[in-house]
Simulated scan of single mutants.
Amino acid sequence: MGLLEQCEELFKNSNLYEVLGVTKGASDAEVRRGYYKLSLQVHPDRAQGDDQATTKFQVLGKVYAVLSDKEQRLVYDEQGVVDEETDCLSQDRDWEEHWRRLFPKITLQDILDFEKQYKGSEEEEEDLRRLYTLHEGDMDRIMEAALCCGHDDEPRIRLVLQRAVDAQELPAYKAFTHESNKKAANRKRKAEKERREAEALQKEMGLNAEDSLVAMIQQRQKSKEKGFNSFISDLEAKYCKKTSKGTKAKKK
């Protein structure tokens, strides 16, 4: 089965750009970010023994391999075909190893700098709008998936989304506009529990100021859709290396 057929079967869409949630005119950075956001959601680490998650992860790697290569992307754009014989789409390729090898390690300061730049940015607002649409206004799932945020950020995030709903830029999902007080309270209790666990870890391990900050970030991201390691990898996407080029094209 070819890549386009695999995309249709696994993601109900054979358009490589739409699979990654980007447009045909997306920049390399946008394609890269789209790939990482989606691949981290289906990463096999999140579902041990889940063969479909592993397959999806591999297929997304192939999609990115095509769209990140100028020659292959040009062929796909012009002819709607993919080179199935190129080395970068080899069935024997270790996609997990390849995924890890693409990116250099980042530091704690990189994380803090990213958070500072990301919060309140247009990029964050675009991400929140995407999550709102994806999860149909469910604040539980939006808060779980949103980057760089804790419970204290919820009023700010809700305000961003409410403004977009009021301006009719987003649909008024009932899950958002009529969320019950009980559901919001449950989310607050969960956040407070995670905060207490982070503080307990800090005390138990006798962490210094910097290590304590790492622990709090880890604990905060632990319950996220992507998890702490995935959060780190999402940032590493900004430092992606180029992949090899292919030359052949094969019709689906």
Rank of each mutant, 00 (worst) to 15 (best):
E122N: 11
K119Q: 13
K174V: 15
N208Y: 05
R156Q: 02
A184K: 08
E136H: 13
R129A: 09
Q162T: 09
D110R: 04
R141P: 03
P171F: 08
A164F: 06
E126P: 01
E194A: 15
E204K: 15
K174L: 06
R163V: 08
L159N: 14
I106S: 02
M143G: 01
L159T: 14
W95L: 01
A191K: 02
E179M: 04
H135D: 07
L147K: 13
A145W: 00
K174M: 07
K183Y: 02
E179F: 00
R141S: 11
E154N: 01
L134I: 05
A164V: 03
E199K: 04
R158C: 07
R156V: 04
I157C: 00
E197K: 08
E96M: 12
E144H: 01
E194T: 08
A191L: 01
E204I: 05
M143R: 01
E115A: 04
L112W: 10
Q162G: 08
I157L: 07
G150D: 06
F114H: 14
I142V: 15
K174H: 07
E124L: 01
K188E: 14
K116L: 04
L108A: 07
E97P: 00
A209L: 13
A145P: 00
P171T: 06
L201K: 15
C149Y: 03
T177Q: 11
R129W: 06
Q202W: 09
E204R: 15
Q162P: 03
E124N: 05
R156C: 05
V165T: 07
A167H: 05
D152N: 09
E125M: 10
K188F: 06
S180M: 07
L201D: 09
H98E: 15
L128V: 00
A185E: 06
Q109T: 06
R129S: 13
E122F: 07
G120M: 09
E124R: 01
A164D: 06
D113K: 10
E169T: 03
S121C: 08
K190M: 06
R156P: 02
Y132A: 08
L161P: 05
E124T: 00
C148E: 11
L170M: 10
A146I: 02
L159R: 14
R130Q: 12
A185F: 00
F103V: 06
C148I: 00
L112K: 14
L128H: 06
V165E: 04
Y118S: 00
K203E: 15
G120I: 04
Q162M: 07
W95H: 09
H178N: 06
D113G: 07
R187C: 00
A185N: 09
H178C: 08
L170A: 07
D166H: 10
C148T: 06
E96V: 13
K116F: 07
L201I: 09
E97A: 15
T177D: 08
L128D: 01
L102R: 12
Q162H: 12
F114W: 04
A164I: 10
W95C: 08
D127A: 12
T107W: 05
K105A: 11
D138E: 12
H135F: 13
L134G: 02
K116W: 04
D110C: 07
I142P: 03
R101I: 01
K174D: 13
L131P: 01
A175H: 03
F103H: 15
C149T: 15
D127H: 11
D127S: 10
K119T: 13
K183V: 10
E123Y: 00
A145S: 10
H98W: 12
A200L: 11
L131Y: 05
P104D: 11
Q168L: 08
R187K: 02
R100M: 13
C148N: 12
E115D: 14
